[in-house]
């Protein structure tokens, strides 16, 4: 072993000084009290600042010293991003709405029950009290439990910046693993979920690592309209089986206008297990995820018969 303190290759140590300053005590946070202030900050710092909402994902990374950010924009005080409202055909959910609020909301229970169900499976109560739907969306984890519901509902994400507000279809929102179409100066304001129409039902199915506060091995949401066992329309989405939350268009079209019976169900479910592209990681295996995707869809479809 040799000690060589004189070697002048500082570059060996860390690629950029910012990586050294990632820890909580060295960072600065700005707590805007209005959306305009938040926009101003985002414009000013562009990609150099990270937005923090409930902190339930971001603080985990920071505590694990895996977060490279010196500046935070703390939006927790922006009450204009809170609230669940009935907008006729859709329910508008403010980005800072917590899972607890979703679980308790009569509007959600009535018009998007799968979203309440999904929220109930996220973390435990301490997390549900603090974690937000906007945070779940921008965290962009393929295992985000509310996301398949939003995908199955064809929700829209409302995004704002100093340049204005735009809406993005949820199924166009993600471009790759933890990547979204959002610009660096944009912030998620709300998500809009179309209400269930008469005859439509929603389903949520999560397979986690245990019965409470579990990260999903596979998560599935389905929204469908059936008449006398015939499927009029069906949206199937899944999490933890691809780099992003995905829809299963092939299986959806296989099922469109099909009359459900054991054979059709098994055929569609088997097709789904081939349509998804899961991996083996520390939480589960590819084999398992494919099989359970099949079983879960078969179970959901059999509930529609």
């Amino acid at each position: 072993m040799s000690f060589s303190p004189s070697l002048g290759f500082a570059k060996l140590f860390l690629p950029s000084p910012s990586l050294l300053n990632f820890m909580a005590l060295d960072s600065t946070a700005f707590s805007p009290t209005s959306l305009d202030e938040a926009y101003e900050l985002l414009t000013r710092f562009v990609s150099q600042a990270k937005i923090i909402a409930g902190g339930t994902d971001l603080m985990v990374l920071m505590n694990a010293r895996q977060l490279n950010a010196e500046r935070f924009i703390d939006i927790w005080a922006l009450n204009e991003l809170r609230g669940i409202s009935d907008e006729g055909e859709t329910i508008r959910i403010g980005a800072l709405t917590t899972y607890t609020q979703l679980i308790k909301s009569p509007l959600i229970q009535l018009h998007a029950p799968a979203l309440a169900e999904a929220s109930r499976t996220i973390g435990a109560i301490q997390i549900q009290n603090r974690g937000t739907i906007g945070g779940n969306i921008v965290n962009a984890s393929p295992a985000g439990d509310s996301l398949p519901v939003l995908a199955a509902f064809d929700a829209e994400v409302e995004v704002g910046s100093v340049r204005g507000v735009r809406r993005i279809g949820f199924n166009e929102f993600y471009t790759g693993y933890r990547k979204t179409v959002m610009a660096a100066d944009e912030i998620v304001l709300a998500v809009r979920a179309p209400k269930l129409k008469p005859g439509e039902r929603s389903f949520f199915y999560k397979v986690g690592t245990r019965r409470a506060q579990a990260i999903s091995k596979i998560v599935m949401a389905v929204k469908a309209k059936t008449t006398d066992g015939m499927i009029n329309s069906i949206n199937i989405s899944l999490g933890s089986v691809a780099p992003t939350v995905i829809r299963a268009p092939q299986t959806e079209s296989l099922l469109a206008n099909a009359t459900l019976n054991d054979e059709v169900i098994w055929q569609a479910a088997t097709h789904l297990s081939k349509e998804v592209s899961p991996i083996t990681d520390m939480r589960s295996t590819e084999h398992y995820r494919r099989k359970v995707a099949r079983n879960a869809l078969a179970k959901i479809l059999s509930q529609m018969v």
Partner: peptide, 13 residues
Amino acid sequence: RIKSITFDPDYDW
């Protein structure tokens, strides 16, 4: 085996 241990010369040790 440990080949070498290097302390960043630019850091205040």
